[in-house]
Design a protein around this nucleic acid. Structure first.
Lengths: 233, 233
DNA sequence: TAGTGGTCTAGACCACCCT
DNA sequence: GGGTGGTCTAGACCACTAC
């Protein structure tokens, strides 16, 4: 009858989502148990489970053994966003990507960075500063510290030939990381590199990555004017 | 033997994740098919599928019928973050939450907002401006427009007694939304309300929500100094 | 302690899409 | 066309936790 009808677990997912959206089931309400829904939709319990798990993963339901399934109090409170990969970010905007290596040398970690990486103060690390360009205009300024234990001593001398970012993607895998987004007034250094006025509001991403308990790298990305991160929820 | 050993689909998930992390399987590599892994781990194919689906959802694997499963080229490129609920955000910091309603009246939508909400220009909407406070210090300035079709005409007169945000959570459910994060220099108005210098870098969240094809609300949240969003990847 | 969701199985069929 | 992942089933047992 209906021209387009979803089938399978997605059908149950969509129907439950509809009941939540249209407030047939309100935040905090307990919804029917899996076996009851399986009976209503005439399918196996596992199929209902698949649908409800998806909704729970997306933050629309709260599920508890014995406690049953309830509509979440704060619906759609989670957003997934892609962590920008600079090259792709630039190319997506239809611009040509390039970069300029500003510095690449071993130096003692600043106190605050050492703390972020949980390394002793004054530990030597590889300091890499890069300016990323879109169509040869400044796009993002990157200030990165890399744990020196990650590579042989004689390797980093050749860093001028590779983008540290790309090298890391190739070689410095990580299992987890902290990431923070914030706004800052451009320092004179940043303003100079990004070609904005000193004090301009710039979007900053601060990220530290880990391989198990070993810190891999800590990086601060300062984006030029107009940069924003978008996503859907 | 080993003191703590993960069991079930998580065991497979963790083992595959380890092989990806430690580069036994490199980005772009095709990994064994489900039936082979099921044999290796001595379990049903559905269990393997559960583990691999999780890894695919998290962005570590790319899966295609017939094409098989491959290690994603950009591992861990997704971050999930909680959309801040102002009251909770403030209370989490151990501060007392309060707010001040600055304005609440019907007015024509600004052009840019109308475009965001896909409504005709000059459409009337409810304009609500609120200052959110943490321990009676400015925390965030909220500039919100609400689709007037959502509530009876005689309701909004009483808005001074309720937080528009809370009212929306209670009454204006939505099915999807756009959200963007950016940095801006504080306008004089924002600087005044947030008690910062004009031009200070402030973190801004711009969000528009939808209920099906109907726009619900479009809001700009301007956060005070030092605000940042943190998450783990 | 009993009820609910979480997980697993062994098998089956289907949908997609690479070759 | 054929191989791979996607989904479903009917049943079973387990783990957590509200009561």
């Amino acid at each position: 009858m209906s021209a387009s009808e979803t089938i399978g677990w997605r059908h149950i997912h969509d129907e439950v989502f509809r009941r939540i959206s249209e407030r047939e089931w309100k935040p905090g309400d307990q919804i029917p148990k899996e076996t009851e829904l399986a009976e209503e939709f005439d399918c196996a319990r596992a199929t209902v489970s698949r649908a409800l798990r998806q909704l729970a993963d997306d933050g629309f339901l709260d599920r508890r053994r014995k406690g049953g399934t309830r509509v979440a109090l704060n619906p759609a409170r989670k957003a997934t966003l892609d962590i920008p990969i600079t090259r792709l970010e630039v190319e997506t905007r239809g611009a040509e990507y390039s970069y300029r290596l500003l510095e690449c040398r071993v130096a003692p970690l600043p106190t605050i960075t050492a703390r972020r990486m949980r390394l002793p103060e004054n530990t030597d690390a590889l300091h890499v500063r890069t300016l990323h360009l879109a169509d040869y205009e400044p796009f993002m300024y990157e200030d990165r510290w890399i744990n020196k234990d990650l590579f042989p001593d004689d390797l980093f001398l050749d860093f001028s030939d590779v983008n540290a970012n790309e090298w890391l993607i190739q070689n410095a895998h990580y299992t987890s990381g902290d990431i923070a987004f914030m706004a800052e007034n451009a320092s004179e250094l940043e303003a100079d590199f990004l070609d904005v006025n000193a004090g301009a509001a710039i979007f900053v991403i601060q990220r530290t990555t880990w391989n198990g308990d070993t810190s891999v790298t800590s990086v601060k990305l300062s984006y030029g004017l107009g940069f924003q991160i978008e996503t859907r929820i």
